[in-house]
Design a protein around this nucleic acid. Structure first.
Lengths: 123, 123
DNA sequence: GCATAATATTGCTATTTGGCAATATAGCCA
DNA sequence: TGGCTATATTGCCAAATAGCAATATTATGC
């Protein structure tokens, strides 16, 4: 089992590529074969296979076996982990809490005083 | 202005590094100077500065100017974009819709029949 | 068994990334 | 002015990444 930090590394890294996000979007419409995933892109089949390996490594897709096909299906569970991580920051874009926080901490830092006196007149 | 796709590239790539996520976590407690951000890590100051540049490039932090300090503060707006993107997949981990979808599309694919007949007896 | 179709693997590139030490820049204060 | 502090920049390296063409693998169906 992967530690959650490394899990997030892999998931966010996988999501950082537009081709891979497009693949996930396609899979949201249902499972697909590799060739079906190749079609919409101007990329070679091996390249798509490599992307699929990255997605699989992040746990975002899983593969089936059906004749000579290896159908790819979306596995959204890791997205929940990612959503949860991001969700911890929700208040920072929903409220204007950040301003208050930033100000409070700025004061705090000034008081701790990193080897210098007080600031006198900003700017 | 950046296109939303490239924006997502940068944001997810920024979030893919544990050091950068830790920096954001620290900034959630309020703004900080570069040196304050260096302290908790066993990394050099230039390395942290480079991470900050990545975060800044993704729009996740912004810099101030105060004497010789360049205070770093969290800017959560891009996280909202990321959260929204991930949110489109919420039903896939909340409901068991995916199973239905996958099955439906599998049937569809079999009917379209990519150059072969029907499956006979799996495995 | 053989031809074909689907997918994976194997080199091979060019680019990007994360790290460092060393050095440069910039602002404060005495 | 000169020295100190905070931060940025530069130059370097090793590892990872995204892409390709070519080839190998695997299963089907005649």
């Amino acid at each position: 089992m992967l530690q959650s930090g490394q899990q997030l590394d892999l998931v966010f890294a996988a999501l950082a590529d537009p081709t891979r996000r497009a693949i996930l979007a396609r899979l949201a419409a249902g499972e697909a074969t590799v060739n079906e995933l190749v079609e919409p892109f101007d990329l070679s089949q091996p390249t798509i296979s490599k992307h699929l390996k990255v997605l699989e490594g992040a746990g975002l897709v899983s593969r089936g076996r059906e004749a000579q096909f290896r159908p790819v299906r979306l596995n959204a569970a890791p997205l929940e982990t990612a959503a949860h991580w991001i969700g911890d920051y929700r208040r920072f874009w929903e409220e204007s809490f950040d301003r208050l926080d930033a100000y409070a901490s700025e004061l705090h830092r000034k008081e701790k005083n990193h080897g210098r006196k007080r600031k006198r007149s900003s700017k």
